[in-house]
Computed example of a mutant assay.
Amino acid sequence: MSDGRIGHEEAPGEAPGDATRLMEIAGGGCASRVLAVAARLRIADVLDGGFLPADEIAERTGADRDVLPLLLQVLVTCGIFERDRHGAFGLAAGSAALRSDHPGSLRNFVILLAETYDDAFGGLLETARTGRSGFEQVFGVPLYEYLGRTPEAEGVFDAAMAELAVPAAAALVERFDFSGVRRVVDVGGGDGTMIMSILTGNPHLEGVCVDRPSVCERADARLAATAGHPLAGRLRFHPSDIFQEVSEGGDLYLLKNVLHDWSHEGGVRILSAVRRAMTRTARTHAPGVPRPRLIVMEPLLETESDAAHSLFQTVICGKETRSFGRHDDLRALLSAADFGVLSVERLSSGHHAFECAAGRTASPG
């Protein structure tokens, strides 16, 4: 009779620990959900760098006193929390990014991965058999359509993308010279975190953030609600379908982590909309003023260890989406939209930044 435990008798010739390893991998989804609940409850914030007994954490977070210790102990086993000699719980070293006030916070990204995206992996078998999006199998619609219908999930998604944008923006500001630029247009820029960081580091700049109407509406409202915000007069949000139309008037256009969400044809449509905006802008420039440039920032998946990221992308968006493994993959897409690559640089965030000009079929970079 089973005692309720997961058991396994090792087969002849089976190495000790093989079964344990299999069960650890199989139970990984449980651990990720536990981590997401801890993030939802803001346990890391409640601890405030110290140790608290489980009962007090439960009281401060509104959690059940009997269940919460189990959740905390699971995360101790995972190395997220630790216990002191009195049995109180604290945040383990290396887990500070779970705090919402940490400068490199990943709280919302943890929630996104372990909730909406983990749900999408319920469609992995469909993806494995057909190449189609597991996300659409589970939710019935593509990712961005689902987000538009689900404000709470869209809010988490926006906040998660903002968390990922912070180190990317810092890396770009560190390496790119904005002195000859007056206006930056961030295409698919979400809540504006990326462009805000660029504007903060370059007081002479103006910025435009282009994204879905619902995203721009929320971001614009947050900016307007912050009395005396230093960027209030220098940043505006432009709602748009980026497959059709992008704001003109930019000296520099930016696409960060946008193209890999779409098929080759979708990527060409986005890039073509950007190129049209850049071409219209160039016609209004005075003689001698440099033509607008585009910077595309994408992580290149160059090693076997990147397979998990590629599979994840396939489950969310289907096998037709782009996982750029080499420079040539992205160069081919840019060339198809009549962009030439002037230079390529690997940033400290792990992104590769492709600086491009419109209307150049040759690639000097």
Rank of each mutant, 00 (worst) to 15 (best):
T284M: 06
F121T: 01
V215K: 05
D84F: 08
A58N: 09
D177Q: 14
D211M: 03
V67L: 15
P292D: 11
P364N: 00
T61V: 02
G104F: 09
G79A: 09
H8K: 11
A114D: 04
G62Y: 10
C356W: 04
Y253L: 09
D241Y: 02
L205Y: 11
A307H: 05
L255F: 09
G134N: 05
R182N: 13
L113I: 04
R234A: 10
N202V: 02
S348N: 09
D241P: 01
L254R: 07
H264N: 11
L259I: 08
R360H: 15
S272K: 07
R60T: 00
G192E: 07
E245P: 05
D177R: 09
I6F: 00
R85E: 15
A159L: 14
R275E: 00
G131W: 07
E136N: 12
N108D: 12
I198T: 01
H229Q: 04
A31R: 11
I43C: 03
R326T: 15
R60I: 02
V274M: 08
A225D: 14
A307K: 10
E145C: 04
A332Q: 05
E152A: 15
L330K: 02
Q313N: 15
L113Y: 01
S310M: 11
L70H: 07
R107D: 09
L301Y: 13
R40W: 09
D3V: 07
R222I: 00
A31V: 14
P142V: 08
P230H: 13
V166W: 02
R40D: 08
A162P: 06
E56M: 04
A221E: 04
A114W: 03
T279I: 05
E265G: 07
V289M: 14
L143A: 05
L271G: 10
A19K: 04
H102D: 15
R360D: 13
G325N: 12
A88P: 02
F312W: 10
H86D: 06
I6V: 12
G325H: 10
A224Q: 15
V166K: 11
V187H: 08
E152L: 13
V208M: 01
I111A: 03
F339N: 04
Y146S: 07
I295P: 01
R236I: 04
L333S: 06
G62W: 08
E82S: 07
R60M: 06
L252P: 07
A337W: 10
P290R: 11
L143I: 11
L143F: 11
A171G: 10
P69M: 02
L231F: 14
Y253H: 05
G62K: 08
M23R: 03
R129G: 08
G62T: 05
G62F: 01
L112M: 11
A44E: 05
F339Q: 07
G155H: 13
D191G: 15
F178I: 02
G140V: 11
T193G: 09
P53T: 13
H238Y: 12
C356P: 08
G87V: 06
R236G: 03
S335F: 11
G90D: 01
A96M: 06
T61W: 08
I295E: 01
V34T: 06
F243C: 11
F139T: 03
G87P: 06
A307I: 04
I295W: 09
A332H: 03
E302Y: 13
R331Y: 10
E56H: 12
A120R: 12
G180W: 12
Q73H: 13
S105A: 13
